[in-house]
Every structure is written in C-alpha cells, then in structure tokens.
Amino acid sequence: MTERASEPAAGRGPRSSWPLYEVFVRGKRGLNHVHVGSLHAPDDEMALRNARDLYTRRNEGVSIWVVPAAAITASSPDEKDPFFAPSGDKVYRHPTFYAIPEDVPHL
C-alpha cells in the first residue's frame, strides 16, 4: 500500500502535471480488489489503460479500479494506537473468549 492519501502533497511538486492514481486489481472472480501500486495519468480513462499495461501484463487480473490518490482518506499513523483502541480491549468479540466443555459437539 502506498498510503499517501491526505498527506501534505509532498510527492507532488509543481512539475508533476498529471495526478497520482492508486490501482486496485481483482486477481480472479471471487476475490477482493487488492492495492497493487500507483501511477500518474492525465485522466481516469488513461489511468485505467495505463494500469492495464503496467499491472496486468501477465493475466494478473480480471478487473481494475483506479482511484485518484487525493480522493482517499486514510487513518493517521500518529493516532494509530488510540484510533484502534476501541477494538483492542473487547476480547469478548472473539470466539476463543468463551470456555465451553470439550465434550460439547459442533461448537
């Protein structure tokens, strides 16, 4: 993952006229789209074509999403611990929290 979204545009100086896109590929039917990398393109249509040429030269995918990097909102690493804290202390959400006698079948 490149995770540049909602950063100050450090990677985009004045000379980069084409926006940055993040590319997601579905490897085959039944799987999620997965982030594979990024590229620059003048518009959405060209981003899709460039993504095909760059990331699927060997049948790596059956479907591609391209998303302007600027459109992605990401959580901040600085607040990583507090942000995920609500799930950290809820051990009762996991099946292993519950002690069940070993002789109870199918549970």
Binding site: T2, E3, R4, A10, G11, R12, G13, R15, S16, L20, G37, S38, L39, H40, D53, L54, R57
Partner: peptide, 22 residues
Amino acid sequence: DEAGHGLYLYAAAETLGADRED
C-alpha cells in the same frame, strides 16, 4: 517489462516524497 519495472520503482520513490518529474 523494463519500463514497467522503472515505473514501479519511481512510484515507490514517490511514497518517500520524491517527485517524479524531479
């Protein structure tokens, strides 16, 4: 492929704040 490899790598450099044109 070599062109593709160059592009993967430039994209990786950009995640560090480098600018492609630069």
